[in-house]
Design a binder for these strands. Structure first.
Lengths: 219, 219
DNA sequence: CCGGGCATCGGTAGCAGCACCCATTTGTGC
DNA sequence: GCACAAATGGGTGCTGCTACCGATGCCCGG
């Protein structure tokens, strides 16, 4: 049945990594890298203008993360399949990536074979997750099945919570945040507690790293 | 004069990246990857036990950074040349890498050619730096040439302090750090205080962001 | 040999972060 | 209108962070 060659967009901000991945992919007869991007905005442009079957997006890219890019690509070029490439075995990213429309989630610490398999699975419209991700999905599913409305009842931060996270990561104390937002210290405290519970985190350090990963603040 | 093939140790914690780089390197007739490592400790072991000409070390690796590994390799296997691979165009790390014995410093966003050139330069016992690094070196040299006994007027952390910063930024409490390093909580406390004073910082949040900027830890 | 930097350990005190409890007001969707 | 989530504010208490005081042993360079 001689499937046609899969035309791939490769987005990663590190040229060396990009070229390495290109070698891995181009070695396969059924895969061809036909476009590259070094950040999320470029990836969106390429997915629209080029004839792309599959986009491989690194999560950590400057200006716009792979997740944000995936959301835009879902909206503007819905026929493009997407695989998310991540340094982090992190459930937040996993869920966000899936919600953003990615059909695969591959760790950079994975084997070449996994990436290739994810590509082919994506073209068959099948998901591909690394084993740990499946476990996470199951746990999440067991924890809170209900949500008749659909998606994950899990943690998206509200606008206010996002503001608070940003300020925490910028080094403000609860008191400073309270003054900045003109609310009570107790409310700041409450927001922080809610955020940490949603994200499953334990202190400001983890919140800070989350905020940096999420691009809310610069390191 | 038919130089012998350069035997390379490749150390990076991400298998996909490692394999991509291996393809880039193995495509060259004069270079051969003969060993791999996924963290600093493994790299040190491999540099000792295998017959290695050149080690390519990623800076950001778990448990032990490429810099720390380079220090050990310099001590234990002084004939092994080293090239540092970094995600960050960061002067702190550039200088640390050079001090640790690396003869090359290549950004992951560089071109393949740069990495290959750095490898060959290392085998000729010549340094290789990306252009921005040379600029940084010059600036630093102009700013403070004298100071025979001492380094930079501005705070360079000691090796121990660096370890503590890394652990703080990874979310460890003082107590957890004390257990990890097998020292007293008070000593950890003292180190943290010294670090914050040196860097002019006020809490763990700022330290965390510093550590991420410096490439000591991943966000 | 001695000064100085580094690493180590101790006490005290205050304030901040964090957990767990409570409540009211507002807006949005059904 | 009613249900629900978001945002707001409060009380209590423990733990951890941070500041400021002290000290000793080690090693390295002059």
């Amino acid at each position: 049945m001689n499937a046609p060659i899969t035309r791939i967009l490769l987005a990663d901000d590190h040229a060396l990594v990009r070229n390495g991945l290109r070698l891995i992919l181009d070695a396969e007869p059924d895969l061809a890298v036909v476009a590259e991007a070094s950040d999320g905005a470029e990836a969106i442009g390429a997915a629209e203008s080029e004839r792309i079957d599959l986009a491989i997006l690194d999560i950590a890219m400057p200006r716009m993360t792979g997740i944000q890019a995936a959301r835009e690509i879902t909206r503007r070029a819905a026929d493009v399949r997407m695989i998310m490439l991540s340094m982090y075995d992190n459930e937040q990213y996993l869920f966000e990536a899936l919600k953003a429309g990615a059909s695969g989630y591959v760790l950079k610490s994975a084997a070449d074979k996994d990436l290739l398999e994810a590509c082919r699975a994506a073209m068959r419209d099948e998901p591909f997750l690394y084993p740990g991700a499946v476990t996470l999905l199951i746990q999440q599913h067991i924890q809170n099945e209900p949500s008749p409305g659909g998606g994950f009842p899990q943690a998206l931060l509200t606008a206010r919570e996002e503001e608070v996270v940003k300020l925490i990561a910028e080094g403000y104390s609860a008191r400073g945040i309270a003054e900045t937002l003109v609310i009570s210290v107790r409310t700041v405290d409450r927001h922080r507690a809610n955020i940490m519970q949603k994200l499953g985190m334990r202190d400001r350090i983890e919140l800070t790293r989350f905020a940096i990963r999420a691009g809310l603040v610069e390191p």
